[in-house]
Design a protein around this nucleic acid. Structure first.
Lengths: 154, 154
DNA sequence: GGTAGATAAGTTGTGCACAATTCAATTGTG
DNA sequence: CACAATTGAATTGTGCACAACTTATCTACC
């Protein structure tokens, strides 16, 4: 491996490309939440609130810290969001008995029941995406590697 | 084309997959802006402000409406953002003489000069992304199709 | 030329997202 | 045991993002 670096693929304009990729990411993410919005409106949820409910539907209770790790959100975002979910009657927050610093988030019956109402949403999104299952899988994999690389670069 | 529908690729769990893709999108977008943040801090810009400057560096003046079309942002987001750029001394806003409904956004000398200081950012991002130029190109293309499909589904 | 409808920008209100700070509870160490 | 450092959650402040609304201007059509 000596000599001048030489790419075995056509040289692309990486900086401009990268800018386009970052904007494409920002743009696609906004477009996806815009498609979610009318569906989630019927549940009375925002997209971040829906993400929290998805985590809780998988396993509960979860502490605020655990939710934050799963979703990459800090307490500054989660604390008021969870208060809104609580005032909607979907979750309850209780101080942990073992460690009184921790706040455990539980689903209420209404919170558990909401899962059924949300079951059609993923398929609707998949339909709106206009990509094949294989493409979606590849996209998810690439985005996962990208996110990991971006995090490790800090 | 008769008979039961049959996919020529392994059946993947589209709903769960799709949920993962949407979260991966949301997550990657946040990770990218987090990598931008310390670089943009040195310019005194946020990521959305940087996007506006990128558009203006390409061609100016631009009306608020034109900026909104390029970036998919409405006046509720752009009006206060542009005021902040103006108070930073980077842009100027003037009512158009031909159409007094329009507000034209111009770069100041300081705004033009900032372009040079930002020139290293795209390459730094490309480095942090950890993907090849070909992968970035494919990602951009897929995201573009995804965004278009999501928009047309509304 | 007068008026209805469309368009451009701004304002208001709600809800993230995140940095920085605060406070209480817990853990580790001498 | 004491107490410094750490951890978990909440609070404060700034800046998007977007829906809904307001105001001013412009265009079309009569």
């Amino acid at each position: 491996m000596t000599g001048a670096p030489r790419l075995n693929t056509p040289r692309l304009d990486a900086p401009r490309l990268n800018r386009q990729v970052c904007f494409a990411l920002y743009s696609a993410s906004k477009a996806a939440t815009a498609v979610y919005r009318p569906m989630l409106d019927e549940l009375g949820l925002t997209y971040p609130q829906y993400l929290v409910m998805l985590v809780l539907w998988e396993d509960q209770p979860r502490s605020v810290r655990e939710l934050g790790e799963e979703l990459a959100l800090d307490s500054g975002t989660l604390s008021p969001l969870l208060k809104r979910l609580e005032s909607l009657g979907l979750v309850e927050r209780r101080r942990s008995a073992e460690d009184e610093r921790r706040v455990e988030v539980f689903l209420t019956d209404a919170g558990t029941a909401l899962s059924a109402k949300s079951s059609a949403i993923p398929q609707q999104l998949a339909d709106a995406a206009g990509l094949s299952a294989v493409e979606l899988d590849q996209l998810r994999e690439t985005l996962g590697r990208l996110t990991a690389a971006l995090h490790s670069s800090r």
